[in-house]
Amino acid sequence: MSFPLYSAAEFRRRAMAQSLTLHPEDWRENGDAKLNPTTIPHVEGMKLKDAAVLIAAVNDGDDARVIFTQRTASLRKHSGQVAFPGGAVDETDRDMEEAAAREAEEEIGLDRRLIEPVGRLPDYMALSGFRITPVLAVVQPGFSLHLNPDEVDEVFEVPLSFLMNPANHAMGSGVWLGSERYYYRMPYEGRDIWGITAGIVRVIYERLYA
């Protein structure tokens, strides 16, 4: 059975298929790591904390919509930035899927019972000190959200077709430890999706749609 390219059903199918081939070292070959190979030895020498984020594709007809948050300006790390729901893994979490769903429920009030995990991406090794596991999921529409004002200012959705169009993947750069480092940017309706979040979106594109 074939599904529209950017539908939640096709996202599910592709996410599950690529997860079967996932290897622990794949993070080196995708997204930001591929852009900045010289940072790989540095991040490998860091002691990283485990975290998980939820990439939730809302089943919205032929073009699924992906949930993003705008973080509050008062947070200690990545304040004010666009992010996926997620955070540090707790000892009580059974796996990364539970951690991502729990964090989404705590941050934006998305009922974890409505979240259908469909796969993972390679871990994202963040220079801010986290090993982030992106959990791919499908969510049916009609849910209600309740934002935690200490963490999230706003929630918005972006069409999957926009995110998976490489023409929307701009490039930025900055100086890190004396060298130029590159990152992806995906401006959307006045919001700046960049850094770790855009890097993870780029990996979705590379592994599922390129």
Rank of each mutant, 00 (worst) to 15 (best):
R28Y: 04
E105F: 14
E98V: 06
E25A: 13
E206V: 02
A51I: 09
L35I: 00
R76G: 04
T21I: 05
D123K: 13
A17V: 10
E103R: 15
E91N: 15
Y183F: 15
V175D: 08
P117H: 02
M186R: 12
D26Q: 08
A9E: 15
M16V: 10
F3P: 02
N30F: 15
L35Y: 03
L35K: 02
R13C: 02
G45M: 10
F3Q: 08
F156L: 05
V118Q: 05
A52P: 02
E25G: 06
V139G: 00
V89P: 15
G172A: 08
I67H: 09
G61K: 08
V152H: 13
V89T: 13
F68V: 13
P117E: 01
T92W: 09
Q70R: 13
S19N: 08
L22N: 08
E44C: 15
S179P: 00
V201K: 01
I132P: 11
T38R: 12
G87F: 09
I200H: 04
R14T: 03
A73H: 09
G190L: 03
D192Y: 10
L75G: 01
E157I: 07
R13N: 11
P37S: 02
H78I: 01
Y6H: 11
G199N: 07
L147I: 12
V175A: 07
I67Y: 04
L147D: 10
I115L: 03
V43A: 00
E105A: 12
G80E: 12
E25F: 07
R181G: 00
A57P: 12
E154S: 13
V158G: 09
P37G: 06
W176V: 13
W27C: 04
E154M: 11
T133M: 09
M171T: 05
L54P: 03
P41C: 11
I40T: 06
R65S: 02
V138W: 04
N59C: 06
S74D: 15
Y188E: 10
R13F: 00
V152G: 11
Y6P: 04
A15S: 10
I132S: 01
F162H: 05
T92S: 14
N36R: 04
V53L: 10
A88H: 08
S79W: 09
D111R: 02
D50S: 15
P141T: 03
V89Y: 02
E206F: 04
L163K: 03
Y6N: 07
E103Y: 15
A137P: 03
P4L: 04
R76K: 15
I193F: 10
E98P: 06
P187V: 07
R131F: 09
R131W: 14
E103T: 13
I200F: 00
V43E: 03
I55M: 04
A137Y: 06
R13Y: 02
V82G: 05
R14C: 04
L121P: 01
F84M: 07
R181H: 00
E103S: 15
A137E: 06
V58G: 11
Y124V: 07
I132T: 14
V175E: 14
E98L: 02
V175M: 11
R28P: 01
S79H: 14
F143L: 02
A83I: 06
M16P: 00
